[in-house]
Structure formats: C-alpha cells, structure tokens
Amino acid sequence: MYSFDYIKPTSVADAAAKRAGNDDASYLAGGMTLIPTLKQRLAQPSALVDLGAIPDLKGISVANGVVTIGAMTCHADVAASADVRKHIPALADLAASIGDPQVRNRGTLGGSIANNDPSADYPAAIVGFNATVHTNTRTITADDFFKGLFETALEPGELVVKVSFPVPKRAAYAKFRNEASRYAVVGVMVAETAHGIRVAVTGAGACVFRMPDMEAALSKTFAPDAIKAIAVSADNLNTDLHATAEYRANLVNVMARRAVAAIA
C-alpha cells in the first residue's frame, strides 16, 4: 500500500471541508472495496477521509411510509433491523445476501452505491424502490444516480449522507450469486411501488438498469408467465470468466420471473 494522510472528521460538514480542494483524496466508508484496492496499489489517494466517526451518517428510521438509512449503516445492521424487516423485507433479504458475515459487519450502503460496482446488490434496491439519495449538497433520484461502470452522479467531494426508500406495496429480490464472492452474477429487484411496477437489474450490465417491457407486462398481469416471452438482448451485457453476456441475458428473465413468483 502506498502511504497517505489520514483524517477522521466527526461531522458531515467537516468531512466535506477536509475533502474540498483535495481532488486526490478519497472518502473511506466501510473499506471493503477501497482497502483491497489500496493493497493492490491500484489507487494512490493523497489522503483518506474516514467517515467512521460521524454519528449523523449512521442509523435507520421509519416515518410516513419511508425507510431512511444512513450512508454508514453496515449491511448487517440493515439485514438485522426489525424496522427494515417489517416494512421492506426484500431490502433486508438483499442486505443479508451481500458477501459474508465479516463483510456485512463493515461494508456500508453509502460505500456500495458510491462505488457502483456493476455486480453490487444495493443499486437494484435503490432503482427498484425508486429511492432518493441524499448527499451533503442535494437530493438525487434513483434513475439519475447510477451513470455507468463505477460511475455515479456524485461530483468530486460530494458525500452520500443517507438514502430514503419509499415502502413498496410488495417486492422481492432474486439473485444468482457467484458462489465464491457472493456478488450478483445477475440480481433482479421487482417492486410494486406507489408509481407502478419497477424491475431493476444489477450484475448484468455496466451498471443497474430497468426493464420497461417487463414493467409494462407486469402492470397488466402480475405473474411470471407474463414476462416469460420477453427476450433480453445480450448486447452491451457483461462477459467475464463467470458468465457470458448471453448467459446473463437469459438469467435476467429467469431471475425476474423468480422474483415475481416470490411475490405473486
């Protein structure tokens, strides 16, 4: 690991101030991706601004049909939260499917979505539930947040503070996981929200995307067979040593039907 300066602010404002004007610095959330990256010398930040001592970034609250989760809340806490389990069980299931127990005790919601790994689970929840990302400067809707491979709408130095999830009427997450890493080869969140059915796919493409054809079909008939004939194009999907684009394209349909079956 290359050397770096280490800063541990205790407020969001202080964190943003320490990061401002230092384009070579990085925020450190749970570190489950960043620290392995540093160990392999794939990144060389001048400084790490550790978000671990900022109380305002942690915690889960429920009010007016919205579950709000602080950016530094770890996956284990989301998975074990009685509030999340009661209001959005699909979100608790998703959090419980990430990595392994040790990773879930460190990895965070904010770190996951800011990193935007193409195989990460949380983006499917953000987009599937039409959640809102609150940063230190603004709010960003789910459909505007994820921009591409490891790319988000966040400006340099902009910090995810919390995410608010409107409670869906019903939802389920179906994930075909890599047995070694537990990342999603393909993961599909199907949710009936106040503004209609949403189908969000992670793991298959450069970043999370929606399936408008499936959303329309499920709006008419909410059943697995309603989307069985909807072909998914392999164009622009990911190919790696785990799965080809064609295999992933097929999995999108299979996982979407499994999610619908889990709900219907």
């Binding site: 541990k8 570190g31 620290i35 392995p36 790490l48 671990g52 127990p101 040790q102 005790n105 460190r106």
Partner: peptide, 13 residues
Amino acid sequence: GRPVKSCTMLAVQ
C-alpha cells in the same frame, strides 16, 4: 464484539 477481517481494516480505524 462483531467479527471482521483484520486484513481489510486499517489500524487507525
């Protein structure tokens, strides 16, 4: 009190 991987954490954390 919670299991974590100490190879993926900085001592300063």
